[in-house]
């Protein structure tokens, strides 16, 4: 009895270290594959409809502005992309948004804290993937969405429920591994 309890006590630190090691290994692997981000802020909006908002259009873009009523009943799932002309990762993700737009996927944009001239120049140079584009120059609507940096991309299902949020650029990998399966699932 005494010897078994002593053996258990001696093994306890080893077991603790092993459990900790396994946990840290899982975290590191997740960080490597991108499935775990210790600095990530999980969105509270996932599973909920978009918050109420009305944003004016960017005249030069030639597409209507964006408001929450346009995100209620939808013929297909949509992407809502927060971007700015001053945001470097937004340049990285732009070709992927253009690809989706060419395929007919509705991509809606919210231009965050940008000057209309700069935003228009960005779209003129790189193309406009947005079917609708709202200007959020004060950045208040972004705060209502829980945006903490640009770019951020959301996928809403046909009922207008937010199903997915990606903080960071839509790389070709994100497009293939996350966005396409989600669009299929919610089609």
């Amino acid at each position: 009895m005494a010897t078994t309890s002593r053996r258990v006590l001696m093994l306890a630190p080893l077991g603790l270290a092993a459990a900790g090691g396994a946990g840290f290994y899982a975290m590191l692997r997740g960080m490597g594959s991108g499935s775990y981000d210790p600095k990530g802020v999980p969105s509270v909006l996932v599973g909920k409809p978009a918050p109420a908002f009305v944003l004016p259009a960017l005249d030069e873009a030639g597409v209507p502005g964006l408001e929450d009523s346009a995100l209620r009943e939808l013929p297909a799932p949509v992407l809502v992309n927060f971007w700015a002309s001053w945001c470097v990762p937004c340049i990285v993700e732009h070709p992927q948004l253009m690809t989706l737009a060419r395929e007919g996927v509705p991509v809606f944009g919210i231009n965050y804290k940008d000057k209309p001239v700069d935003a228009a120049a960005f779209l003129a140079r790189r193309g406009n993937p947005f079917q609708r584009l709202g200007r959020d120059e004060p950045g208040r609507v972004a705060i209502d969405w829980g945006v903490y940096g640009v770019p951020e991309t959301y996928i809403l299902d046909r009922k207008g429920i937010i199903r997915w949020r990606w903080p960071g650029p839509v790389t070709p990998e994100v497009l293939a591994q996350d966005i396409r399966p989600l669009l299929r699932r919610h089609a």
């Binding site: 802020v41 999980p42 969105s43 509270v44 705060i143 209502d144 969405w145 829980g146 903490y148």
Partner: peptide, 8 residues
């Protein structure tokens, strides 16, 4: 808190 969750 409603917008950014527990993390904030």
């Amino acid at each position: 808190h409603d917008r950014y969750g527990d993390f904030v």
